[in-house]
């Protein structure tokens, strides 16, 4: 099991390398001169040229990329062009808010989505099922920034009961969490429903009925745990999307999180910030995926044996070779 974890962590290294290369190349070829943006329109051509030299913008692509990578390995993500503060510090200041929002949204989505999906599956084709699935379809198709705007319009403008922007207390979380989690709720509910529908038709569910087990325990102990693998996958993906998708919602609600920070940085051609932000999000994605994979083994003993088998095989191979 430990071997598996180490292997999985090693696999993320090329992924992260790829991410840095991709984002670096994209920023390199984007129009706009950061030196000019930093100094403003009044600066002379010579001043701009000096700054370009200082920032290393005149170096070749490969040189720039190598320098950047060396910095990253040392834990230095560069300095923000705009504020002059190290990028890592600026990201650390903001990432907490984004993670908190994404976690709250995902928890909310799980708490609503899984029971909704279970009820839909157990009462398949009933009115409850139909209504839940129509709502879920709405949730998936509705763009979340639009939902965010509608929520603001209704709760802040008309009813004036919820604050429209900022993040200064529990009340401020309500609308962002709802708008970020709408898609997640819908996706999780749909996945739970279809996964449960498949499981409750299985022979072993009939076996537990034949034992005289009560329906409640059959659904929650026997069926749900078996249906959990695809649901966990979807929850993981949705959590990752919430981390990234907060970008738009943070903009709508003026939340000072990583998303808004990055959108501002892109507008300002603030290369180090964009690169650093993307890298941090990529790392979070990788960690999340690793956790999900480990969770599979926890839920399903068959997958656990597989992991153990593969590490056993490795051992045998090493002993032989």
């Amino acid at each position: 099991m430990l071997k598996f974890v180490i292997k999985r962590i090693l696999v993320t290294i090329p992924v992260l390398l790829g991410v840095t290369l991709l984002i670096f190349t994209m920023m390199y070829f984007t129009n706009g001169d950061p030196a000019r943006l930093i100094l403003g329109d009044e600066a002379t051509e010579i001043e701009v040229e000096v700054l370009r030299e200082d920032l290393g913008l005149n170096d070749s692509f490969l040189e720039q990329y190598t320098n950047y990578l060396i910095g990253v390995i040392k834990g230095n993500l560069g300095t923000s062009y705009v504020t002059g503060i190290p990028v890592s510090v600026e990201i650390m200041d903001r990432i907490g808010i984004t993670i908190r929002l994404a976690t709250l949204s995902t928890l909310f989505a799980v708490v609503i989505g899984i029971p909704a999906g279970i009820i839909s599956a157990v009462k398949q084709y009933s009115a409850v099922d139909n209504i839940t699935m129509i709502l879920a379809l709405l949730g998936i198709t509705m763009p979340n920034f639009w939902l965010a705007l509608m929520l603001v319009l209704f709760f802040s403008v008309f009813l004036n009961i919820l604050p429209a922007s900022g993040l200064y207390g529990p009340l401020y979380y309500i609308m962002p969490v709802i708008s970020i989690s709408a898609v997640s709720i819908a996706t999780i509910a749909r996945m739970t429903r279809s996964s449960m529908l498949e499981v409750i038709r299985q022979d072993y569910i009939r076996t537990s009925r034949a034992k005289g087990q009560t329906e409640f325990i059959i659904i929650f102990k026997h069926a749900l745990k078996n249906a959990l693998i695809p649901i966990i996958t979807v929850i993981g993906i949705q959590f990752a999307i919430s981390l990234g998708g907060a970008v738009v919602n943070e903009q709508v609600f003026a939340i000072p999180g990583l998303g808004k920070f990055m959108v501002d940085a892109i507008k300002a051609r603030n290369y180090p910030v964009v690169q650093g932000g993307v890298l941090v999000i990529a790392i979070m994605f990788s960690i999340l995926n690793l956790l999900i994979d480990l969770l599979y083994a926890f839920v399903d003993p068959r997958i656990k044996t597989q992991y153990q088998k593969s590490s056993k095989k490795l051992k045998i191979a090493k002993e032989e070779g």
């Binding site: 022979d203 009939r206 076996t207 745990k225 399903d300 003993p301």
Partner: peptide, 14 residues
């Protein structure tokens, strides 16, 4: 009580 036809699927895998 009942013994089911297919032992492969009659037991809960987890």
């Amino acid at each position: 009580s009942m013994i089911f036809q297919d032992p492969m699927t009659a037991l809960n895998p987890i």
